[in-house]
Structures are given as C-alpha cells and as structure tokens.
Amino acid sequence: MEAAHSDEDAVVEEGVSPNQSPLVEISFQRNVNRKRKYLEAEPKFLGVTQIGMSAYQIICASVFLANDLGRPGGDIAFIIACVLVIIAGSVAVAAQNLHLPTLRACLGMQIVACVASVFNMIFNIVKMEMIYYSCWYYGDDNNTLHIRETCHKVVSTQSHFHAEGVLINVCLMAISVTLAAYCCKVVNCCAPAPKMPVITVQAPPVQQ
C-alpha cells in the first residue's frame, strides 16, 4: 500500500509541470508589418504627381524667363523650390522598398517639399498681383496701341499661369503633408512604436 501511495504522489508531482508553463501565454510584440502601412498612401502615384506638376512649373517658368517675362532672381528661387519637390517625389517613390533610412529621408524631404510648395504658392500670388501694372507705361496713341494689346494678352496668359500655379502648389502641399504623415507613423519619430498583444496557446502535455 505504501509503495502504491508513493507512486500516486510521483504522478501528482509530474502533473504540476503544466502550472509552471501555462497553456495560454500573452505577450506584447512590435508589429513587424507596420512598415507596410506606408504603402497605403499610394506613394508611387503621389510621388509621380509631385514630379510631374513640378516639372510642368519649371518648364513654364523657364519659358517666361527665356522671353524676358519674369524676374531672374524670383523665378530662379521658384525653380529651385520646384526641384526640391521633384527630389521629394523621387524619394517617396524609392521609399516603396520600406527601407527605414529611405523612409526617414522621405519624411525629411516631404517636410522640405511642403515648405517649398508654400513658398511657390505665395510667389504665384504676389506675381499675380504685380503683373497687372506691367502694361501701364504704354500710351493710347495709334503707334503703341498694337503693342499695348499684345502686352495685355501676355499679361492675361501669365495671370492664368500664376492662378493655376496657386492651385498646383496647394495640391502639392497636401500631397507632401499626406506622405509626411504616413512616414511619421512608420518611422515612429513622434512616439515609440506601439506593441500589439500576441496570444500563444500551447497544447497540454499528453499524460501517460
């Protein structure tokens, strides 16, 4: 009887082991797929849009400069700002590889692109206000009437271009803010990466 009782005690002792390793274990781990959230912003489409719109503005500004219809100092600064937006769009497309340094570079360039878009928007507004006074020095005599009409046509074209430029840069600013927001979520520059609960269910040991 004592031998049988001791055997039962041994079985009970072995049965305690499941308490030492619980069947359900809850742990908090970082989401390994968090970087893929950047792809939800459609960075390829938005980056190509930034490149295309900025290239269009550079071509138009260059045409005006080539025909002495602009001010070199201001227009060159405008073109430089457009080039910065093109670089930001290129980095946004390259960041699709989800490489963390590239995502950080994308965040920095999108902030720069946002500032550049605001500058270009203000530049277009100022140019649109100043352009109406460029034909005032022509007189009303018959010799200068044709020149004055041509001047007004050119001014009208420039005015439409600058008004369009304001809308384009508002759009570019919105794109930069969107991409920067998604980059910020991925690189965790504002807060540490959140951890998600992971529940692990272990199969109970088979008792013999």
Rank of each mutant, 00 (worst) to 15 (best):
G74D: 08
D140A: 07
N97A: 13
G74E: 08
V85P: 01
V83S: 10
N124A: 15
I131T: 10
I131E: 02
S117G: 11
I79V: 06
N120W: 01
I125T: 14
I86Y: 02
S117E: 01
P72G: 09
N124C: 15
I80G: 09
D68L: 15
C135M: 12
V83A: 13
S117P: 07
Q110Y: 04
F78D: 06
I111Q: 11
N124T: 15
K127D: 11
A105L: 06
A81I: 08
D75W: 08
N120Y: 06
Y138F: 08
I86E: 03
V126D: 10
D140W: 03
N124L: 14
L107I: 03
L98H: 03
L107P: 01
V118Y: 09
V112I: 08
S134C: 15
F119Y: 11
L100G: 00
R104D: 01
I86Q: 02
D140P: 04
D75M: 05
D68F: 15
F123H: 12
I131H: 03
L69D: 14
V126A: 12
T102H: 00
M109F: 10
Y133C: 11
I125F: 14
A92W: 02
F123D: 07
V112Q: 05
P101W: 00
Y132V: 10
V93P: 04
P72V: 14
F78V: 13
Y133I: 10
S90Y: 01
L98W: 02
M109P: 05
Y137C: 05
D75V: 04
D75I: 06
F123R: 07
D68Y: 15
G73P: 03
G74R: 05
A92F: 02
W136S: 11
L100S: 00
N120M: 10
V85W: 00
A88L: 04
Y133F: 05
I79Q: 01
Y133R: 11
